[in-house]
Design a protein around this nucleic acid. Structure first.
Lengths: 172, 172
DNA sequence: GCTAAACTGTGAAGTTATAGTCAGGTCAAA
DNA sequence: TTTGACCTGACTATAACTTCACAGTTTAGC
């Protein structure tokens, strides 16, 4: 049996989070002490570990609650939906990066450039022995194997939609 | 002069957003009609356009408010901070993707794989004529030119920290 | 046995950037 | 003048907590 603060510390959560989980019926302690203090069992702890796993995947507490209640494996569905959502969010963040680059004026002014652009990428591939034909072949492979990922990759280099279309069409 | 709904429609915002902007002193209409309706001037509209630009970069309304008040170009600072934050958020989302992949079991079960892993990447580079030595050279180039971006890239392939360290150390 | 510190409980309010609802106000046509 | 359409400000709800206030409880030291 653990008190609320003990469990919170072990799980690297705040006490208030556990109180909140109790309130929304996500995780209720299986006992209470004589003075009405929350007491968490080993089983409660296991459940909290599960909750944390799903939380690390970015599922909402509401979704976690549902899939823990319906003990079956509806988890797959939720997780796949979440994957879609993550892709969407990453796209949005990329678009925000582009917006900032535009607002800041020139790419060269960027502080510690974590953003790689097309020119840099080409330069690096050339430096390791690729020529234009090789790169074309590489895009064709990429498009055939993983078309969505290919699009994501091209977008991340800040390449305009039109050019992306052209590159993707090489594979046809 | 625009009424609140006119301006909202033009700017592709909801009426409630403009009411909210008024409430938090981000954008107050410069006049009110005799019946106390909000009336927005051309200048208000220009300001709202600026706000939208910063919003597209993902800045918080609080940050936007500050940098519009201090009319000077403290914008750069905010934008650079936001870039850092975006990197952080993308890393988190990647980590969530990995968590989901782990929870789902095998990569092969993934629906439409947008995630590229190490094996796939190597395969594609090989198919376009790169050998192991070339790839090593490529990593060395990448590390010298853009170390942070290199780390991000390796992380995105789901490569464990230890191996990332090794690959990065090739450049020394 | 007493006091103080550290812990616990409940409940309310605050956080962000909106979307949605609602009673009532305003305006144009009939 | 009345009807109906449209419009308004104000309010509430959202997710996942955190912070606050206040009161009761347990524990440690003396």
């Amino acid at each position: 049996m653990y008190t609320i603060s003990q469990l919170a510390k072990q799980m690297n959560l705040s006490r208030s989070s556990l109180i909140y989980y109790d309130k929304i019926d996500l995780l209720k302690p299986s006992c209470r002490s004589s003075s009405n203090y929350r007491l968490y069992s080993e089983q409660d702890k296991v459940k909290l570990e599960q909750i944390n796993q799903f939380r690390a995947a970015g599922l909402s507490l509401e979704a976690i609650k549902q899939l823990l209640q319906q003990n079956n494996s509806s988890a797959g569905l939720f997780l796949e939906q979440r994957l879609e959502q993550i892709n969407h969010e990453i796209c949005q963040l990329r678009s925000q990066q582009q917006q900032i680059v535009n607002l800041l004026g020139q790419t060269t002014l960027l502080p510690s450039t974590r953003l790689v652009n097309k020119a840099q990428w080409v330069e690096m591939l050339e430096a390791s022995g690729m020529d234009e034909a090789d790169m074309r072949q590489w895009h064709i492979e990429f498009e055939r194997k993983l078309p969505e990922a290919h699009t994501d990759f091209l977008q991340s280099l800040g390449i305009p939609e039109q050019e992306i279309e052209i590159i993707k069409s090489w594979a046809k």
